[in-house]
């Protein structure tokens, strides 16, 4: 177990280094950073001086090492556009994105899994058919369209929910949260549903097909032959066996929820990292872009690490070292 975690940690470090290299190369190949920072009337000598001062004349490897060194300490330099440290900008915006993503993920799991179990247990029921038709819509409609439709119905026509922003937020330490005020919760509702809908339908369809698969297995038949209750069979025996693939997909999806919050945040003018990232692209603000890249990769790596550890918790067959220690009869 420990050996496994260490191995996975090393792999994660390697992945992060590769991502950092890509983020680093952006500075050198997407425009000239010096040109981005100075005005038109800056002389060549001044530019050369700045270049020297910023260390841009050093060998690439040295520059990369310096970049990684800074990144590890959370220093991603100054934003070209805001003239402020990128780290501070992210600190302000991270809570908005994480809250949105977390609520969207919870929504997709808490609704998607029960719907998947239901459609798996009663594949021919009329409610299952409705769920399946609904899931087809969820999978095929693009996120921005769902967002716009929701705004049209609930903000424009009914006027129940705000169409943009985070509402009133409360600061707790360095973290701003919209979860504690009514207006914050109201503002969160539509973006979270928009962002979570695709994941919800994906999880529902996955749980359904896994349930159908597991219910055909011999151990479920044997559980029936032993007279166990339907509840024990469906939830105790069948659902738990669907968890490994569901966890894999959920882990990947939470990563992409954070990454693809960009679109939802744009539609709802949600003051998160995604919105900032999109503005940064428009202004070729490389430090923000590279920091965003690294941050999202970091989330993916951490979530996947957690999922891998959860496998061990759920599936005893993966705990190879314990099996070996006990031997065979």
């Amino acid at each position: 177990m420990t050996a496994f975690i260490i191995r996975r940690l090393l792999q994660s470090v390697f992945v992060m280094l590769v991502v950092a290299l890509v983020a680093f190369l952006m500075f050198n190949y997407v425009g000239d950073p010096v040109n981005q920072m100075v005005g038109i009337d800056t002389s060549f000598a001044q530019r050369e001086h700045l270049r020297q001062e910023l260390g841009l004349n050093d060998p690439t490897l040295v520059q990369f090492a310096r970049f990684v060194g800074h990144a590890v300490r959370g220093d991603f330099g100054l934003s070209y556009q805001h003239k402020r440290p990128v780290a501070d900008l992210f600190k302000e915006r991270l809570p908005a994105t994480l809250e949105l993503s977390l609520v969207a993920a919870l929504f997709s799991l808490l609704v998607g899994i029960p719907m998947g179990v239901y459609t798996g247990l009663k594949p021919d029921g009329w409610l299952s058919r409705i769920f399946m038709a609904f899931s087809l819509v969820g999978v095929s409609l693009p996120t921005f369209l769902i967002g716009i439709l929701l705004i049209f119905v609930f903000s424009v026509i009914l006027g129940w929910l705000p169409s943009y922003g985070r509402g009133t937020v409360v600061a707790i330490g360095g973290w701003t949260t919209g979860l504690l005020t009514v207006s914050g919760l109201k503002a969160l509702l539509m973006p979270a549903v928009t962002l979570g809908l695709f994941q919800l339908t994906l999880i529902m369809r996955l749980v359904r097909s896994e349930m159908l698969e597991v219910l055909r297995t011999d151990y479920i038949k044997f559980a029936r032959a032993r007279g166990l209750t339907d509840r024990a069979i469906n939830f105790g025996h069948a659902l738990k066996n669907t968890l490994v693939p569901v966890m894999t997909i959920t882990g990947l999806q939470i990563g992409s929820i954070i990454a693809f919050a960009i679109i939802t945040e744009t539609v709802f003018q949600w003051p998160g990292m995604g919105l900032m990232f999109l503005q940064a692209i428009q202004n070729v603000d490389i430090p923000i872009m590279s920091a965003y890249l690294i941050l999202v990769a970091f989330f993916f790596v951490v979530i996947n690490l957690i999922v891998d550890i959860l496998y061990y918790v759920v599936d005893p067959r993966l705990r190879v070292d314990t099996a070996k220690a006990n031997g065979h009869a």
Partner: peptide
Amino acid sequence: LRGKQIGMIFQDPLTSLNPL
């Protein structure tokens, strides 16, 4: 009745038990 009055043993012991 199943399990209590009538028990059943299946062919393949490798797949008859819940692995988890």
